[in-house]
Every structure is written in structure tokens, then in C-alpha cells.
Design a protein around this nucleic acid. Structure first.
Lengths: 111, 111
DNA sequence: CGATCATATTCCCATATGGGCATACGTCAA
DNA sequence: TTGACGTATGCCCATATGGGAATATGATCG
């Protein structure tokens, strides 16, 4: 087999620095494609392509506003990444066990 | 310009599913290359190549043990990923603010 | 409708890269 | 030293993909 596709899930989508930049910008609120292109110093088609990848993995959402299309971030699509990485946190954070305990308390309080 | 390199940082290293599998296995403790290859059903050279990428970004560490080389995971290399993703958590986790407060408390207790 | 603006798509190219395979390198045992 | 074992490298191929440029598609305005 040959090289595997790298734009099929959140892990791959955020591996591209430009796409992380786009998401970071969208953290500040909805943006149009041209706005993003301007801020990134990228050509519009490239931005559209990155946005497409991001949309396909559910990391962004779009809404039409006249001639523009406003994109916004959908953070929940990062949950799988967050969960996966979180399993490694205890290997570097000494505070993790303590935090773990606190979280347990939180859960109990919820009930 | 052409395609950018994708094996230069932790974000890219963990974009490859096989490499995540390797790290997951190493979470169970040190493993030799052949052990990993066996568990993954992958050929040894492929595993060595993935391990090389992981080592270059600091995600694994190796130690020689006779003819074998034992690899172990270095979770702290995931901190940048964890931090980056964490900034998005508040967009999906309603519990985030509460957790934030708890973390502040933890910090205070440390002093 | 025709013109203009905003975005998406298509084609091209250079290149990175994952797997398959053979092989080089390093270490230990006899 | 020779041979076997464990691991790393090198080479080849197929393919994905990011950027560049041109163009298609869509929507709004006059």
C-alpha cells in the first residue's frame, strides 16, 4: 500500500499548522473566508481548501450570510484528541493524581 | 512550494494511527521493537521507522538492553498538544468553568 | 439581465511518506 | 571468529496533499 490519507480525522486535521491557525482565529468568533485569508497571509483558495478539510472532520461549521460564508469553530470535534492525550497526562503531570481525586469529588457532588 | 513535512512535531507524529498504537502499547511499559511489531502485526522495519519519527519529536526514549532496544513513552512531549487542545475545551465542556475554579484552588493549596 | 464580489473547485507540480523488501549494522553466544 | 539474532537504513513505488493559478459557482446589486 502507499501513503495513508491524512485528512480524515481530527488528529490529522490539526497536524497542519495552517489549520491550527485558522482554528485559533475562529476562537475569536465567526470569520469569513477572506478575513481568514487576510489574517493568515494566505491565498483565498488555500484557505477554502483547509476549511473544507476542517469541515469534513467536523471541526468547523459554516453559515451563509449574503455573499459571505461565516465559519465558526466546533470544539467538541477535538474531544477524541483531548481524551487520547489525556491518558498520557499522568506520565508527566505529578499533580494528575491529585486532580483525579478532585474530579471524582466533583462527580460525586453532581449526584 | 510543495507538500509540507508532516513528521516534525508531536502534532504530526500522533496524526498517524500506527504511531498512536505504538504509544498506547508503550503506555503499558517498555517494549522492544520486535514485541511491538508482533503486537501490531506490522513488519519490523516499519515499526523502526515509526519509532524513529517518535524519537525525533521526543515522544519516545530508548535504552539498550543487550541486543534489544527497549522503548518507552515520554508523555511530556504531548504537553503542547494538550495545551493547545485545552484552549478549545471550554467550547464544548460546560463543566470547564467549574473545573477551572478547582484548578485554581489546587494552585493556591500548593503555596 | 449584466457586473461585481465572495467562495469553491479544478488542474498542475513538487514533495513527503508509508509500506514492502533487501540489506547493513551491532551485539551476544559458542 | 563465526553465526544468529535484533534493529536500523536504503531503495522503490504508489499516493496523498499543500500551494499556485485559473476558473467555475453563487449571490447581490444596479
Amino acid at each position: 500500500m502507499a501513503r495513508a490519507a491524512t485528512t480524515t480525522d481530527a488528529f490529522n486535521a490539526i497536524a497542519e499548522p495552517r489549520r491550527r491557525e485558522i482554528l485559533d482565529l475562529l476562537l475569536g468568533g465567526e470569520r469569513s473566508v477572506n478575513e481568514l485569508a487576510g489574517m493568515l497571509g494566505l491565498a483565498q483558495p488555500q484557505v477554502s481548501k483547509h476549511l473544507r478539510v476542517l469541515r469534513e472532520v467536523g471541526l468547523v461549521d459554516a453559515r451563509d450570510d449574503g455573499r459571505q460564508r461565516l465559519y465558526r469553530v466546533v470544539g467538541s470535534a477535538l474531544k477524541p484528541v483531548h481524551d487520547w492525550v489525556g491518558r498520557y497526562q499522568r506520565t508527566w503531570s505529578e499533580r494528575f493524581d491529585e486532580l483525579d481525586a478532585v474530579l471524582e469529588e466533583l462527580k460525586d457532588e453532581e449526584k
